[in-house]
Amino acid sequence: MISKDVVEKVAKLSRLHLEEEEIAQYADQLNQILDTMAGLQQIDTDGVAPLAHVLPIENVFREDEVGECFTQETVLANAPEQSNGMFQVPKIV
């Protein structure tokens, strides 16, 4: 059961602002999603290792070689606000 407190905490963690009624609404939604997976706990996974990658591939590397970077101008092309070749944000305290 996901409480309104949990929704509030998670929203804060995810940098989302929720109005009071939204909190209740999402708590309800999240619980519905949760219901769809109640059955998972019944599947016996003792001795089963987690499967984070479906492919049997390992050791994918690149060699330590320097390639081309983008220019400062290109990197900043989509920046909402910039200054002196850098992305600009409000003062970090």
Binding site: E65, V66, G67, C69, F70, L76, G85
Partner: peptide
């Protein structure tokens, strides 16, 4: 020489900002 997940140079000491990106 290069960064951990991309091939940008790992040495930018004294370089212009956002030029090794």
């Amino acid at each position: 020489e290069s960064k951990i997940f991309c091939s940008c140079s790992a040495h930018s000491f004294g370089a212009d900002p956002n030029s090794h990106v």
